[in-house]
Every structure is written in structure tokens, then in C-alpha cells.
């Protein structure tokens, strides 16, 4: 397939709403109790994820952007069942995760993997590469040929030198360690990988290598990604669709091109305008300098009405009182009173 056709087909893929969703989540809510005193009484909640819905198609990448503490990691972990949602529903290939028995759950754990931001802490320093990337394979009895052969195949796949098979994590650079993590996640032949800031700790030149690798693997194996990052530029290069999160809520989502070229939510606009660097001609609209005032409020005491109203340059009276509802046109949705 030539690249142009390839790109076209890929675009068609995400222009189809919920074509064949690998993952669907509805109204997820994950709160953490704040405990005080010797009796550890619960005095309040950190509303890390506060009503969020999303879906990811087969072979599709959904980007999730937002500032520190807005709940991106918690949402990712909730989807994988690593945090318990107090409300909501998660469907994996149409099956409700909360209604599965142990055996089914184990299988689904295999089919959903995660890659973390800090490649070193995610790797056990006392295990060598072959043990790290075949650990899951052994557990799920998926080894083909010898363990060495299988490990070497995976290492080639992610661009690691197969000679390094018996080395330990500290002997690798940051970018190489992230490749080890990717090989480990890939080894179980997952359908979905949650990539939580996979390149944030890497140098720019290495960032580009790792992003390219993730894109190649996605296209080769028709993988789905939830790609979490605080960096909208990174997300815009890999994600077919993008969701923007603020204080535990998704405030806007849509095809990445629409989010970048036709942002609707004032917060999305501010994020785009805060990206440092010269205006690149890939963006249609003229960027202007919007500087948000104030700090990000605490997610344990979110502002009333629209949670962005304390920093919003376009705030209106109604915003302080009433929370906006979702306004949808095609695949693009936004929660803001400007559009209701």
C-alpha cells in the first residue's frame, strides 16, 4: 500500500464513530478519600475523575491531554481496572468489565497493557532484559520457540540490539529503557495499550524515535492506544482523536485536526496558544497570546458551575451557577455555555 492510500484509509478509520470500539467507558467517576485525624475520618474527596466517557476504536489512538493533576493517569488506571471507579461502566470489546469472572478478567488483563512515563522505575532493576520481556509470556504460556528466540524477536521489533539480551535496565539509556517497556507490553499481544506520558522523560531527538516506533507498531498490529500526555504537540502528531481534560472532566473531544484547527472550549484554545514556539503553518488559525490568570484550582474543592470559570477569559454570569451540558456536532463535542 503506498503511503498516501495508507494515510487516507487511516483517516477514514477514525472518521467512523464507534466503528468497532475496543474500549468504551461511560460516566466514570474515580474519587480518592481525604483522611484526617487519628480515626482517619474521611473529610472530603479528591475528585480525580469526575464523570468522563470515551471510546477507542480498533487501531485508533485517542489522545488525552491536560495539565498536571487533572486526572489523566487516574482515568487510564481506572480503564485498566487498577483503580476502582465509584460509578460508571467500562466495556472491553463489548463485555462489561465489572461482570467478568476471574478467568475472563485474567485474559483481559493480558489484552490491555500500560507503558509508564518513567521507564526506569517501571523496570525491576534486578531482572535482565530477557526476563523482563518474557515474564508475561511465560505466565500466559505464549512462548514460541525458545525463550531466547522469542525475546530476540521482540527486541528486534522495538529496535533494540539483540546482543543486549542479558543486560540490566541501568545499562541502557532512557530511550532504550522505554523500548524495553514497549517490548514487554507488546509481548502479550494486547489489543489496547495505555501509554501514560511515554516520552515526557526523554530528550527531543529520542522522543521522536519512540513516537515513530509506537506509530509503526500500532499500524503493523492494528493496536489501539490511549495516549496520555501534557504536551499537546506530541499528542497532535500521534492521535487520531483527542480529548482535553480539566479538573477530572473531559471538556472537549474530537478528531485531532478539529481540536487543533477549530478548538471550541476556551481551555483548549488556551492550551493551544500556550504551546511555545513559532507559528507553524500546519495550523490554520492564527495563534494569539492568551494568558490564563490564576492557578489550577484544587480537585477536592472544584469551582461551582463550569469548573473553568475561575480562569476563563470568556466567563459569563451563567458559568458560575450552572454546569454546561455536552454540545455535540458530528464527532466533536464540547462542554461550554458559549455553545448552548
Amino acid at each position: 500500500m503506498d503511503t498516501e492510500q495508507h494515510v487516507f484509509l487511516r483517516k477514514m478509520n477514525y472518521k467512523q464513530p464507534k466503528k468497532s470500539p475496543v474500549l468504551e467507558a461511560y460516566d466514570l467517576q474515580t474519587w480518592f478519600p481525604i483522611k484526617r485525624g487519628i480515626l482517619a475520618r474521611t473529610v472530603g474527596y479528591v475528585r480525580a475523575v469526575d464523570i468522563a466517557s470515551l471510546y477507542i476504536n480498533k487501531g485508533e489512538t485517542l489522545g488525552l491531554v491536560g495539565e498536571s493533576g487533572c486526572g489523566k493517569t487516574t482515568l487510564g488506571r481506572t480503564l485498566l481496572g487498577l483503580e476502582k471507579a465509584r460509578r460508571g461502566k467500562i466495556l472491553f470489546c463489548g463485555k462489561n468489565l465489572l461482570e467478568l469472572d476471574r478467568r475472563e478478567l485474567r485474559e483481559i488483563r493480558r489484552r490491555m497493557q500500560i507503558i509508564f512515563q518513567d521507564p526506569l522505575t517501571a523496570l525491576n532493576p534486578r531482572m535482565n532484559v530477557i526476563d523482563i520481556i518474557t515474564e508475561g509470556l511465560v505466565e500466559f504460556r505464549l512462548i514460541e520457540g525458545t525463550r531466547e528466540d522469542h525475546a530476540k524477536r521482540l527486541m528486534n521489533e522495538v529496535g533494540l540490539d539483540e546482543e543486549a539480551i542479558y543486560r540490566y535496565p541501568h545499562e541502557f539509556s532512557g530511550g532504550q529503557r522505554q523500548r524495553i517497556n514497549i517490548a514487554r507490553a507488546l509481548s502479550l499481544r494486547p489489543d489496547l495499550i495505555v501509554c501514560d506520558e511515554p516520552v515526557s522523560a526523554l530528550d527531543v531527538s529520542v522522543q521522536a524515535q519512540v513516537i515513530n516506533l509506537l506509530m509503526d507498531l500500532r499500524d503493523r498490529y492494528n493496536l489501539s492506544y490511549l495516549f496520555i500526555s501534557h504536551d499537546l504537540s506530541v499528542v497532535s502528531n500521534i492521535a487520531h482523536r483527542t480529548a482535553v481534560m480539566y479538573l477530572g472532566k473531559i471538556v472537549e473531544y474530537g478528531p485531532t485536526g478539529d481540536i487543533i484547527n477549530k478548538p471550541m472550549h476556551p481551555y483548549t484554545k488556551a492550551l493551544i496558544n500556550a504551546v511555545p514556539g513559532p507559528d507553524f503553518k500546519e495550523i490554520e488559525h492564527k495563534r494569539k497570546r492568551i494568558i490564563l490568570k490564576g492557578e489550577i484550582p484544587s480537585s477536592s474543592a472544584p469551582p461551582s458551575g463550569c469548573m473553568f470559570h475561575t480562569r476563563c477569559p470568556e466567563v459569563m454570569d451563567i458559568c458560575r451557577e450552572r454546569a454546561p451540558r455536552e454540545m455535540k456536532s458530528g464527532l466533536h463535542g464540547v462542554w461550554c455555555h458559549l455553545y448552548s
Binding site: 487511516r10 504537540s233 487543533i260
Partner: peptide, 8 residues
């Protein structure tokens, strides 16, 4: 450098 881009 990854640039803000409308196309993947």
C-alpha cells in the same frame, strides 16, 4: 520537535 499539527 513535535509541532502542533492537524495531521498525524
Amino acid at each position: 520537535i513535535p509541532k502542533l499539527s492537524a495531521d498525524e
